[in-house]
Amino acid sequence: KWEEIAERLREEFNINPEEAREAVEKAGGNEEEARRIVKK
């Protein structure tokens, strides 16, 4: 599940997989929260 979210974030925000994974981890697997983290 987290991998899927990280993949979507990576494609959408054009970030590297590591950044995407970190955002999802910080968000506890919550996609909306992960998006907010990435946008900062």
Rank of each mutant, 00 (worst) to 15 (best):
K39T: 12
A23W: 04
E25Y: 15
R35S: 03
R8E: 02
E7W: 12
V24F: 03
R8S: 05
E3S: 13
N14G: 15
E19Y: 09
A27W: 01
L9T: 01
L9F: 02
V38R: 02
E22H: 12
E11I: 15
V38D: 00
W2M: 07
K40F: 15
N16T: 15
E11S: 14
R10D: 02
E32I: 09
K39R: 14
E18S: 11
W2L: 07
E31R: 04
A23D: 00
E7K: 14
G28L: 13
A20E: 01
K40R: 14
K26I: 09
N14Y: 06
E22T: 10
R36L: 10
N30D: 12
R10L: 08
G28F: 15
E18Q: 11
N30G: 04
R35I: 08
R10F: 05
N14F: 08
A27T: 06
N16I: 06
E33N: 06
K39S: 13
G29H: 03
N16G: 13
N16E: 12
G28N: 14
K1N: 14
R8Q: 05
N30Q: 07
A20T: 02
A20D: 01
G29P: 01
N30P: 00
R10H: 05
R8N: 05
R21F: 12
E12G: 03
E31V: 07
E19T: 10
R10C: 08
A34N: 00
A27P: 00
E18H: 11
K40Q: 14
A6K: 04
A27H: 01
E22S: 13
E12N: 03
A6S: 07
V38G: 03
E11A: 15
F13E: 03
E33I: 10
E11D: 12
G28I: 08
A20C: 04
F13I: 03
R36G: 06
E31P: 06
E7N: 14
K1E: 12
E11F: 15
A20H: 00
A23S: 04
V24W: 04
E11V: 15
V38Y: 04
E31C: 06
E7S: 11
E31H: 08
K26D: 03
A27R: 00
R35P: 00
R8Y: 04
F13K: 02
A23H: 03
E31L: 14
G29E: 02
R10M: 13
I5V: 09
K26Q: 09
N30A: 05
E25D: 09
K26A: 12
R10T: 09
R10P: 01
E3T: 12
A20G: 02
E4T: 08
E32Y: 09
G29N: 03
E22V: 12
E22Y: 11
E4V: 09
E32F: 12
E19M: 11
G28V: 09
A6Y: 09
R8F: 03
A34W: 00
E4R: 13
A27E: 01
P17W: 15
A20V: 03
N30H: 07
N30T: 03
A27Y: 00
G29Y: 05
A23Y: 06
K26F: 09
E7D: 12
I37L: 13
E19C: 09
N30M: 06
K26V: 08
E18N: 10
R36N: 13
R36K: 11
A6Q: 07
E25A: 15
W2K: 05
P17D: 07
R35G: 03
A6F: 07
I5M: 11
E33T: 09
K26H: 08
E32N: 07
A34D: 00
A23F: 05
P17I: 15
E19W: 10
E19D: 11
E33W: 08
F13Y: 10
V38A: 11
G29K: 02
A20N: 02
K26N: 09
A20W: 03
E12I: 06
K39N: 12
N30I: 10
K39V: 14
R35V: 06
E32A: 11
N16P: 14
R35N: 02
I37G: 03
K39W: 08
E31I: 10
E32G: 07
E25P: 01
E4G: 09
K1Q: 13
N14H: 09
W2Q: 04
K1L: 14
R21P: 02
E18R: 09
E32C: 09
E25K: 12
G29W: 04
E31Q: 05
E11Q: 15
V24N: 00
R8V: 04
R35H: 05
I15N: 02
L9W: 01
E25Q: 11
A34Y: 00
I37W: 07
I5T: 04
E19V: 13
E33V: 12
E25L: 14
E7H: 13
E4S: 11
E12P: 00
L9A: 00
E22I: 14
I5Q: 03
E3M: 12
E31W: 14
E33H: 09
E31K: 04
A23R: 01
G29R: 02
R8T: 05
A23T: 04
G28H: 14
K39G: 11
G28E: 08
K26S: 10
I15G: 03
A23V: 07
K1S: 13
K39A: 14
R10Y: 06
N14E: 06
I15L: 11
A6P: 01
F13P: 02
I15Y: 01
K26P: 01
E12H: 05
N14C: 08
P17Q: 13
A6L: 09
V38I: 15
L9G: 00
E7Q: 15
A27K: 00
E22M: 15
K1R: 08
E11N: 14
V38T: 04
